[in-house]
Amino acid sequence: MTNIGIALAVIGAACAALFAGIGSAKGVGLVGEAAAGVVSVDPSKFSKVLILQLLPGTQGLYGLLTAILMLSRVGIIGGTPADLTAAQGLMFLAASLPIAIVGLFSGIAQGRAAAAGVGITAKKPDHNGKGIIMAAMVETYAILALLISILLIYNISI
């Protein structure tokens, strides 16, 4: 059980990438469905709906970033894993939770908002920006969660 600390940190990194990635996949998939519906009727709107489809993809990137930073901090990426106690490992696991949980739910919620925004683009292409802004508002909370996760990762003393 000497490696329990590092194991918990790895689980934390995996959670960050996993849950935020699931959120993004679901969100991007949903917007993709809506976008495909519009493009099937009017292919000229492809570029406009593509921007909306990209929006829920950021949570997955935040999860990836968090996982890489965490693995780097605990020395896994460098090839020399730190000697972490169980308490330190748990702290790393806790540090991954903000982006893991918020990433999951905000990815799905942003997907819904962006899919509804696709409807605006479909009907009033000139108002495409409004749909993007409304979907982008959800991003705020993913960024806040990312910020907290990063602050925690860099402030856990090893």
């Binding site: 809506a34 495909a36 519009v38 099937s40 009017d42 819904r112 899919a115 479909a122 009907k123």
Partner: peptide, 15 residues
Amino acid sequence: TNYASAVAAVKAMES
């Protein structure tokens, strides 16, 4: 979130 694609297509047709 059913019919996301269909609803978007219908909104395009509404024009």
